[in-house]
């Protein structure tokens, strides 16, 4: 690790002002990406501003048809939260298959979506559920937030404070785990909103990061059942390929995981 200056912020405002003072500042949430990258000397921030102790970034709130998860909430707390389990059990399930226990005790929802790894689990949930990302400056729809591989709408120094999810009528998430990293080799989140809209998002599949899957959405809109997807064909073009999965395999997984997610959603 290169030399860096560590700051522990006690409020969002303090974090933002500390960030602005550094020449090349980075926010630290759960540290599941930033710290390994720093240890490998692939990142050398001048200042690291730790968001982990900021109380206003912690917790879950269920208000009417909106579930709000504060950005600094760790996966384990999301997974075990009674409101999450009641309102959107698919999110509790997603969190339970995210990484491993060590990751779940450190990683945060805010850190996950800010990094926007193309194989991260949470971006699929946000996109399928039509969530809204709240920052210290504005609200951004999930659609606008995720802008491709490791790229988001966040501006330099902008801090995610919470994610608001409209409670769906039905939702499910199924994932084929990457055998080494436990990211999603491919994961699919399916949701049916209370107004009857169907949204499907796949992660780990596309070279451009999390994506909607219109063909499956159309099939499910017509008939919300696993068999409705039988006839859907997913193109391997533009999908990721590596030693753990060819593009054709991932195309198959988009379909199979979607079917299983629908079955899980009920």
């Amino acid at each position: 690790m290169y030399q860096t200056t560590y700051h522990r912020a006690s409020s969002v405002d303090e974090a933002a002002s500390l960030f602005a003072k550094g020449s090349e500042s980075k926010f630290l949430a759960g540290g599941q990406t930033l710290l390994p990258v720093m240890k490998q000397r692939l990142a050398s921030p001048s200042d690291v501003i730790d968001l982990g102790r900021i109380k206003e970034l912690q917790g879950v709130e269920l208000s009417g048809d909106t579930l709000t998860i504060k950005a600094g909430t760790i996966y384990y707390d999301i997974m075990t939260n009674a409101d999450v389990k009641k309102a959107i059990p698919a999110i509790a399930h997603l969190t339970s298959v995210l990484g491993d226990p060590a990751v779940r005790y450190r990683g945060t929802i805010g850190g996950s979506i800010a990094n926007n790894d193309p194989a991260a689990d949470f971006p699929a949930a946000l996109l399928a559920l039509g969530a809204t990302v709240k920052t210290n400056k504005r609200s951004i729809s999930a659609e606008d937030f995720f802008q491709g591989l490791f790229t988001t709408a966040l501006e330099d120094g902008e801090i995610i404070t919470a994610v608001s999810f409209p409670v769906p009528a039905k939702a499910g998430y199924e994932k084929m785990r990457h055998p080494a990293s436990r990211f999603a080799l491919t994961g699919v989140f399916v949701a049916q909103t209370k107004s009857g809209e169907v949204r499907v998002a796949a992660t780990g599949a596309s070279q451009s990061g999390v994506m909607r899957v219109p063909a499956i959405e159309a099939a499910l809109k017509a008939n919300w059942s696993p068999s409705a997807i039988d006839g859907v064909s997913i193109s391997a073009s533009g999908l990721l390929a590596d030693i753990h999965g060819t593009a054709e395999y991932r195309a198959n997984l988009v379909k199979v995981m979607a079917q299983r997610a629908v079955a899980a959603a009920g």
């Binding site: 491993d100 055998p179 080494a180 990293s181 030693i243 753990h244």
Partner: peptide, 16 residues
């Protein structure tokens, strides 16, 4: 080498 870290080289875990 394509597998020079545990992110790529799949070591068995208890649930495997």
């Amino acid at each position: 080498p394509v597998t020079a870290s545990f992110m790529d080289y799949a070591m068995p875990r208890a649930d495997d």
